[in-house]
Amino acid sequence: MALSFARSTTGRQAPKRFTISRVLLWLALIVTTIISLFPMYWLFVTAFTPTQDTIKTPPDLFPQGSVANFERLFSQAKDYWSWFANSVLITIGITVFHLIFDTLAGYAFAKKRFPGRNFLFWIILSTLMIPPQVTLVPLYIVVQNFNLRDSLWAVILPGWANVFGIFLMRQYIQTLPTELEEAGRIDGCSEPGIFWRIILPLSKPALASLAIFTFVRFWNDFLWPSMVLIKSPSFTLPVGVASLQTEFSTDYGLIFAGSAIAALPMIIFFLCFQRYFLEGVRAGAIKG
């Protein structure tokens, strides 16, 4: 396979011959693609197979198209749509904050000079390496003391503190030409007006990456929500799916029906905005 390495840039001019190395190359790519997608496939197969048929040997390799699991999910896990709504509210609450205020802060750090700018930026930068687990105990104490358990705010507010977006927006806005702002200023545009009319529209590509990064990150978040959302109606989808596993331990059909619905929005989202996802990875935004 190594024979096809680094042909990168000359790929097109290389004659497309049916060689052993080409066969091996495609074989490796197809096998890894199957390995990559198989767990996702199996999730949906199990979701659409009646539970009694999920526990047999050999297993059915293709789904039966039965929706019995979904019907049971909605009748037995009564809070499921409440989890879904909580996930939507929390994720939107965090994402909207970041889209507006990370862009504002990123703009100030990128284009403006003010006393304390470097100091503030340095402080943010120096906390980037600190794992989020360090803040768990203090935040948990605060949540206990303010009786915020089972409140969506207990998840939303700490989500606002993520500073990654400030970096992303600063990096991007730095590349925008300063002449445009100056032109706006000469035309008598106020500072908020310059931000709203000039910076924000020009930042759309970075905003798309930021929105996607934030949305995926918090839609899938588990550790912190599982600590502060204790009662079932206030769960988010990941917390809820984890609880399905303990509550319906061997009802695999039901567990995967719940998992399938939780996974689907992100999968659709990804298929629609794939370009921005991959750009976000390149900008250093998304772990995966």
Binding site: L29, T32, T33, S36, L37, P39, M40, W42, L43, V216, W219, N220, F222, L237, P238, V239, V241, A242, Q245, I255, F256, S259, A262, A263, M266, I267, F269, F270, L271, Q274, F277, L278, V281, I286, G288
Partner: peptide, 19 residues
């Protein structure tokens, strides 16, 4: 291929682990 490799990464670690 990038998309095929990336797709599972947009799914929650919880769901991946359950699977």
């Amino acid at each position: 291929f990038r998309a095929a490799y990336y797709l599972p990464a947009v799914t929650s670690a919880v769901i991946i682990a359950v699977t």
